[in-house]
């Protein structure tokens, strides 16, 4: 807290002319600085994109589960609904993924997945836990 106030004071000095504005501004910058510090470690551990191998394995499981033909393209951006999966299929896919990767997907998470990339990201997140 002490370092926070001192930094905002020094900032205020730098932009002296409009003292009212700079006071506000100094406060704002100190707040965002605080927040950035808090978010950083969390962002590093969670929001990393899934490895290509995981994505590959996920798409092959999805292909198998939906009995898709070889020439049908499946990428990370492919939505389950686009390739003809209904909500029951999605449940089956998630269950299959759970088994293959040895993870347990919570119910709430299982229903928010719409693309293959999202599925792969979630699996890596669970594996790293």
């Amino acid at each position: 807290m002490a370092s926070l106030t001192s930094s905002s004071v020094s900032f205020k000095c730098a932009v002296l002319p409009s003292s009212f504005n700079s006071k506000n501004h100094g406060l704002k910058s100190s707040v965002s600085f605080w927040r950035a510090n808090q978010v950083k470690p969390r962002g590093l551990s969670i929001s990393c994109a899934a490895k290509p191998e995981t994505l590959e394995k996920v798409s092959s499981i999805v292909r198998e589960q939906l009995a898709m033909t070889k020439d049908a393209t499946v990428t990370g951006e492919t939505k389950f609904s686009e390739i003809g999966a209904d909500s029951l299929d999605t449940v089956e896919i998630v269950m299959k993924l759970e088994e293959e990767f040895g993870v347990t997907v919570e119910e709430e998470n299982a229903q928010t997945i719409t693309t293959i990339q999202e599925a792969a990201d979630m699996i890596e997140k669970l594996q790293n836990k």
Partner: peptide, 25 residues
């Protein structure tokens, strides 16, 4: 019940899907 492609599931649909998951488990 299983027709939604988007993720706007009704409460009842969620119950059904949870039951299905339960059976598969």
């Amino acid at each position: 019940m299983g027709s939604t492609g988007g993720q706007k599931l009704s409460g009842l649909q969620k119950h059904v899907l949870n039951l299905y998951r339960g059976f598969l488990r």
